[in-house]
Design a protein around this nucleic acid. Structure first.
Length: 153
DNA sequence: GCCAACGTTGGC
DNA sequence: GCCAACGTTGGC
């Protein structure tokens, strides 16, 4: 079992949007970074837990948890010239980009802001808090995951 | 293969 | 809106 954190700008796709999806499940499209792609392709496993994080929001915060329900498969939005995520380098017979499906488990009663995370010594080593880190998909440790869900409830 | 220029991310 | 940090692009 792995633990992950994914970022989304709530103005684009929020956890409330996820809650409205059929089966409260969505495909996680638009990841266009190779390191993040590799996580999605190789390491996301069915049943893995995912912290849903709102970036570029007020405040930036972990807002809930999800579960991986479908493992890595080609991100079809890369094939669509109409899509904002279109990438002509990605071919159907050699997809450059991958996505997974995630299902909402719960929305936190109290969102865990980045400030609260920074104040928590147990989270001091979190990748998310590392200066300069811009990954939109990243691993978290089991301890970090448990700490955050304890703070969020 | 180097590296400057450029675009993006994302907290503040 | 600013800007630092980083990844990508493209000329050479």
């Amino acid at each position: 079992m792995n633990y992950w954190l994914v970022k989304s700008e709530p103005a684009v796709f929020s956890i409330d949007d996820l809650a409205k999806e059929k089966d409260q499940t969505t495909y996680w499209d638009g990841v266009r970074n190779y390191q993040a792609r590799n996580f999605l392709r190789d390491d996301f496993k069915t049943g893995d837990k995912v912290i849903f994080y709102h970036s570029n929001s007020e405040p930036p915060a972990a807002v809930g948890i999800c579960e991986v329900v479908k493992e890595g498969y080609p991100d079809f939005t890369a094939f669509d010239p109409e899509s904002a995520h279109y990438d002509p380098k990605s071919k159907k017979d050699a997809p450059a980009w991958m996505m997974v499906d995630i299902k909402l488990i719960k929305i936190f009663a109290s969102p865990v802001s980045i400030t609260k995370m920074k104040e928590n010594k147990k989270l001091a080593k979190m990748l998310l808090l590392r200066p300069g880190n811009r990954l939109s998909v990243m691993p978290v440790t089991k301890d970090e995951y448990n700490e955050i869900i304890g703070m969020g409830r």
